[in-house]
Design a protein around this nucleic acid. Structure first.
Length: 508
RNA sequence: GGCCGUGUGGCGCAAUGGUAGCGCAGCUGACUUUUAAUCAGUUGGUUGUAGGUUCGAAUCCUACCACGGUCACCA
């Protein structure tokens, strides 16, 4: 139940006074002719050739009032719409006493949406403005937004005074954050550009965009705990997908050579600066290629997105200068771990001896992990944070990679890579396993290894095996965390800063 | 989940055991080209919640809540 505070009470009182005077506070009709940006641009282009025509330019603009400067019988406001801002020059002469008094008495004030009609002009200080002769309230704001004042420096940079920075308030009330912090709005514009660029890339490479089930009778394709839900009429438990993998590969059986999907995955796990329970994933699968080709595609994709969104291949992330220029180094897991820890896990071919070797180096790990899990731990702890420039880490242990094809003449490694940028795992890919007998054996192996752990069980998907038995072309598959790419390209340190409504604990 | 930190008017901050203050916003007034407008005056707080210690608590203690960081977890 809303308990208006003092400021809100004052605004409610203003609404009452406006309605007393017969002013509509939430009218339905708007008559906009120009966005703020279009009005300014139109004036400036006319002004170059013909000053008279420019000052005869009549516009009706709409937007939210972001600055008010009352000066007696003349006042200034800035209104902001989705395209930018424009100044309103309000003078009692043009506006008339009745309307001007609404402004003067503060009945129309900060944060309200208004419509202003008038002719374009330039003030003595040189700012392009609308000389307003009609002003209409479009929507009254009852709760004032946090106040941020801006000063434009001589060099054109904008300095802000006052801020709305409390992370909790910003995330819980993202609408206020967006309304007040332009740079936040820009992050999400860039996010949309990034996703569009990813689509462009795959479309232009001949991939088919598809949509596969989010509600699944069986989850799989990754090692993660799922969310469970229930279909009432069918009396059936369903899982929110943790990956797209198994459905997309079924489509290769169906005869598409190359498919991709961009969508939401759900993982019932801890939240952190790089984990949100729901996040956006891009995956693709392409027939007749292997993981070497997938690495080439990865390089091309990221370069293409960076070119389209940033206009270049280098950018700064949290102080690090990052260059996406290909080729990126391709280093095996074994070499990478050896270089950072001195441990050659091939000299410790089982979990017990590897755990002992890690223990000798002064590290402690949770007991009872599989050999592959230990290697993964070493990778995450010692290698990942060092991988600032884009890097492929290749050839993973088999027991943590149930959907990847074995490296030839090597029974412990599979053709899998992850790519890292700025110390963050960005994505994961393999030469996909397409032998149904091997796949079935892997499912069973996984079940044995992880039954004790019970958490990240990989359920055996009979229908997936049935699909594979019809014949699946050799193919390369790939997945990337889109939110993390957005973090990189917008220089944000937390995934919450690139999600409009990040998950927060319920407020009691 | 463990540990550390933070929580004070709408927003941003101060006050380390002794009368809760400041800036912005708000409100009243002045000002017909301002732009962080300016000038004069002024309202607003049970200090996250609940207990405790103390003559006295924003400050110290305990628990809880939320957020942030970190570790664990997380292909």
């Amino acid at each position: 139940m809303w308990q208006p505070n003092k400021l809100e009470e004052e605004r409610l009182e203003k609404v009452r006074r406006l309605e007393e005077r017969g002013v509509a506070t939430y009218p339905a009709r708007v008559e906009r002719t120009h966005t703020t940006a279009a009005a300014v641009a139109a004036f400036e282009s006319l002004e170059e050739h013909n000053a008279d025509a420019a000052s005869a330019l009549r516009v009706t603009v709409c937007g939210r009032i972001r600055r008010v400067n009352l000066k007696g019988k003349v006042s200034f406001m800035h209104i902001e719409d989705g395209t930018g801002r424009v100044q309103l020059f309000l003078r009692i002469n043009e506006l008339g006493e009745a309307t001007y008094s609404l402004v003067k008495e503060g009945l129309i004030d900060m944060d309200d949406f208004v419509q202003a009609s008038g002719t374009m002009m330039r003030t003595r200080a040189g700012e392009v403005s609308v000389l307003v002769d009609e002003l209409k309230l479009l929507s009254k704001s009852l709760s004032p937004l946090p106040v941020i004042k801006q000063a434009v420096q001589d060099d054109g940079s904008v300095v802000e005074f006052g801020e709305f920075s409390d992370p909790e308030s910003r995330y819980r009330q993202r609408y206020a954050d967006l309304a007040v912090n332009r740079d936040v709005r820009e992050v999400f514009i860039k996010r949309a550009q990034i996703i569009r660029a990813i689509r462009h890339f795959f479309d232009s490479e001949g991939f088919l965009e598809v949509e596969t089930p989010i509600l699944q009778p069986l989850y799989g394709g990754a090692s993660a705990r799922p969310f469970v839900t229930h279909h009432n009429q069918l009396h059936q438990d369903l899982y929110l997908r943790i990956s797209f993998e198994l459905y997309l590969k079924r489509l290769l059986v169906g005869g598409y050579d190359a498919v991709y999907e961009i969508g939401r995955d759900f993982r019932n796990e801890g939240v952190s600066w790089k984990h949100n329970p729901e996040f956006t994933m891009a995956e693709f699968y392409k027939a007749y290629i292997d993981y070497n080709d997938v690495m080439d595609i990865t390089e091309r994709l990221l370069l293409c997105v960076a070119e389209e969104v940033l206009g270049g291949t280098t950018f700064t992330y949290q102080g690090d200068e990052i260059d996406l220029k290909a080729p990126w180094p391709r280093i095996t897991v074994r070499e990478a771990i050896k270089a950072e820890t001195g441990i050659d896990y091939m000299a410790h071919p089982d979990a017990e001896s590897l755990e002992a070797a890690i223990g000798e180096s002064g590290e402690s790990v949770a007991p009872g992990q599989t050999w592959g899990k230990l290697i993964e731990h070493l990778l995450g702890k010692f290698v990942e944070p060092k991988l600032i420039q884009p890097t492929f880490i290749i050839d993973y242990p088999r027991d943590i990679s149930p959907f990847a094809k074995a490296v030839e003449y090597d029974d412990v490694h599979v053709e899998r890579f992850e790519f890292y940028i700025a110390g963050m795992e960005m994505g994961n890919a393999f030469t996909e396993l397409n032998d149904p007998r091997d796949q079935e054996a892997r499912f069973i192996e996984m079940a044995q290894w992880y039954r004790t752990g019970d958490d990240d069980e990989t359920p055996l998907d009979e229908d997936y095996l049935r699909a594979m038995r019809f014949g699946m072309p050799p193919n390369g598959g790939w997945g990337m965390g889109v939110d993390r790419l957005v973090m990189l390209l917008t220089d944000r340190r937390s995934i919450r800063d690139v999600l409009l409504f990040p998950h927060l604990r319920e407020q009691k």
